[in-house]
Design a protein around this nucleic acid. Structure first.
Lengths: 134, 134
DNA sequence: CTAAAGTGGACTTGTACGGTCGTATATTAT
DNA sequence: ATAATATACGACCGTACAAGTCCACTTTAG
């Protein structure tokens, strides 16, 4: 019915994996990729996005890798998703585009009721923090 | 972040349109397509699915069209979505496939926590009935 | 009989996603 | 210094799927 992207899946698995390690321990992308059998290159991209948005910190070079940048309790799942997907999208097109680009704007009837549903979904993702999925 | 398909969008708009009419009044697909500027053929397919799942009743032939099959209060939005999308999917792959086809099943760590999120989403869609979006 | 409606299969097309490759850059161990 | 090991990042490919289109058929009111 509604599906998270592979990237988000991988991101959640990865950041959870990192979170299970003792604080400050550095984990390589390769370790994660091997552990869960997910493509290394793709995972790397995801980890880079998580780095750019400040959820994890990266350490380049030999003996490098990734570590959590903040305590897991402070990271809601929704933040992880947004970090990976970038453009946050609404459940119906009208809601994420400006009114002017929506061809059926004047007659679109389902937008406002679905806002409630949208809010519920957002809440479902934002009330759960990383600490709960470790 | 998560998006309903166009078909579902059209389906919701359409069934809402039908629901606003006096009970028993018949509405043609063309009328709906014209009113909201959505492609007629595509809308037809959607309406056919809604018909097959018994949410609306169809009347063939001249002066035919569609009407609600049940009172709107009894129709949760989730039922409409399921009718149109057919295969109900989970937010992560592991959850909708059998365990044997999931390559990372034994090591997949995010499945069970996400079940909670999934349940929340389901609830968001199933607690809202058609009568609320009219 | 015919016009207006639904039914339904086949087809095209665009695009986003998952995945891959290659190269550059940074850091550390020796 | 240099080799080894890691991230960073852009370019590319292939496929699946969503969205949309086309067309032939059936049903029924008038």
């Amino acid at each position: 019915m509604i599906r998270l992207s592979k990237k988000v899946e991988y991101g959640l698995i990865a950041i959870r994996h990192i979170a299970t390690k003792p604080a400050g321990e550095i984990v390589t992308a390769k370790e994660i990729a091997d552990t869960y059998g997910i493509p290394y290159e793709l995972l790397s991209k995801v980890l880079q996005k998580l780095t750019k948005s400040g959820l994890i910190s990266s350490h380049q070079g030999m003996r490098g890798g990734y570590a959590l940048a903040r305590p897991p309790v402070e990271i809601p799942v929704s933040v992880i998703i947004n970090a990976i997907e970038g453009t946050r999208q609404a459940i119906v097109q009208c809601m994420s585009e400006g009114p002017q680009t929506c061809t059926v704007f004047t007659v679109c009837t389902i937008k406002s009721p679905l806002t409630k549903v949208q809010a519920n979904i957002e809440r479902a993702f934002s009330t759960m923090t990383l600490s709960e999925i470790v």
